[in-house]
Design a protein around this nucleic acid. Structure first.
Lengths: 309, 309
DNA sequence: TACACTTATGGAAACGTTACCACATCAATG
DNA sequence: CATTGATGTGGTAACGTTTCCATAAGTGTA
């Protein structure tokens, strides 16, 4: 019924008499308008997709929370998709999301290349979060290179002579950026910058500590993220190595646990919640204003000094 | 076109000639069938709602991951809703989810009463996770009372004479159960069981440590969850109190950080991932087999002994 | 030949909305 | 009085599928 539609959407002319009658009946029948039917006719489903490696990872769960909060404010629902960093799962989820006519997708820390995403999504708005765009795509990111530089410089300024980096996985742009920042800071002082590779997980930080000890302990270590730093702290504790007495340690991310652990961890803050929130805002602009020019939002990495240095 | 539908759903009679032609065209046009239209006609949207207090909380993000994995296996998408423990937001989200015709809802650690949920959902399948049902509703839970008992008994067996409990918020059934288990264990030894209240967050554990010190330090503390236990560890460290030398500490949940911190935390394990997974399985049974008898799945709390005791 | 059954195809209704158009009433204006 | 504009109401097509029905050709059997 047209009049019912007008009442629900508060559009057009409706006499207050009809309005009241309609409202009363809706109340009685516990009537909830169908978003599905609405979506079919209008093409707007008020849903967006969230493609993220793993919500149970503390950094990503922060991002996810920011995304859901912002989306909720805009009246958008979020469909959660965990890709586990697998391109194949990313593609599968994208197909599903397309079938659901989501209005856009927030892609967090994806493995698929931008070309892949663009071609698969074929026109569906999307935003990259925690990843810089080289093409013409909206994105939210921080300058990982600068972050790596800041972290390393902090170690040097604290008087470290031999610094090391435990970097993230080879195929991660973030890990790459931080590593380059590390190398730049090291080069400035004509120091050598040794590094070993991890996978961003606690266990790999724990394991790294063993390898490092074999090579002789440096006096400063920059860990590619907080989870690995926590692993290193735990390993050091087990080995009787003291932080910051025996070496200084800097992490990256500033997940909440970094300030809950002992020693509290000096780290480079990445505002996950905010980045998620911004991602949705940019996405919403694309959705609302059609194919406007893609925008990027860059956050500055920020050193948070705590007890580990 | 009927034939296209038959090809897509692999149903009815289609000549291999037509099938090939249809598939070829679908390929060329990058055709993805619309779940929205499908949902409208069939009433099945292949989506479920996830109503959870806060995904950025480590225990819940584990649960959420379990839920998404299980749902994905069953071909269901998950719509994420963070309620922040607010009844009002729970209700709002439920209305939204109903409008979206989700096939069911997994309700994790809700504040709304079962009666409220049942009346608002009016027939829509749902499952309670991390909460026991007193009505006739499917649920996945652990015996919090037993968990509290085990934790406290462990302290007593380790030789504690004066034990205390830092419990969770008054309106949380989990907090209540654990507290009761604590009281039972204490009563068995005719000990007095003092307690103070927190809100399950790190900060409240940190704050609790201060109050406890004013009253004189007990030799064993059972914290209502791991986050508060971590807060207490951190506070103790600041105050120069040593764990387990000065007092023993037991937590609850076994979030991953409990084994990443120093001292590693003795705790009562609650299998969040599995509980989420089971929740979806029970929900799916309700969805698939109509209103079959509600089932409940109970997990046993399990003591994990580490260095804090 | 006549009948039944299998295989194959397309037409039409239905799902629950919204957008658009047609129409009706009433008051104000010239 | 005729015209205009504001106000209000209901009919109908459309969105993209699936389900059901009608139809038709081909094959085997009595």
């Amino acid at each position: 019924m047209s009049t019912v539609s007008r009442v629900i959407n508060d559009t057009g002319y409706v006499s207050s008499d009809s309005r009241q009658r309609v409202m009363k009946v809706m109340e009685e029948l516990h009537f909830t308008p169908s978003n599905v039917a609405r979506g079919l006719v209008s093409g707007k489903t008020s849903s967006i997709g969230l493609l993220i490696p793993d919500v149970s990872n503390p950094f990503f769960s922060d991002v996810a929370r920011g995304i859901e909060d912002a989306a909720s404010t805009l009246g958008l629902s979020v469909i959660l998709c965990n890709s586990d960093w697998k391109i194949e799962r990313e593609q599968t989820y994208i197909d599903i999301l397309k079938g659901k006519w989501v209005e856009g997708i927030v892609v967090v820390g994806a493995r698929s290349s931008e070309q892949q995403l663009q071609s698969v999504l074929s026109g569906l708005p999307f935003v990259l979060v925690d990843q810089r765009s080289t093409q013409n795509v909206s994105c939210v990111w921080i300058d990982n290179e600068l972050g790596g530089y800041i972290a390393t410089k902090h170690l040097v300024e604290r008087g470290c002579k031999r610094v090391m980096h435990v970097r993230g996985p080879a195929n991660s742009p973030s890990a790459m950026g931080r590593h380059q920042g590390f190398l730049r800071a090291v080069a400035e002082r004509t120091m050598s910058g040794k590094f070993i590779s991890g996978n961003f997980r606690f266990e790999s930080g724990y394991a790294a500590m063993g390898k490092i000890l074999d090579d002789g302990l440096p006096d400063g270590i920059f860990a590619g993220n907080d989870m690995m730093a926590l692993g290193m702290i735990q390993a050091a504790q087990t080995m009787g190595i003291k932080i910051p007495q025996d070496f200084l340690l800097v992490g990256f991310d500033d997940i909440s646990f970094s300030s809950y652990i002992s020693p509290t961890l000096t780290t480079v803050r990445q505002p996950g919640y905010l980045m998620g929130k911004s991602g949705v805002e940019l996405l919403n602009q694309q959705i609302a204003y059609g194919h406007s020019k893609p925008q990027s939002r860059e956050y500055q990495p920020e050193l948070v000094v705590r007890n580990s240095t």
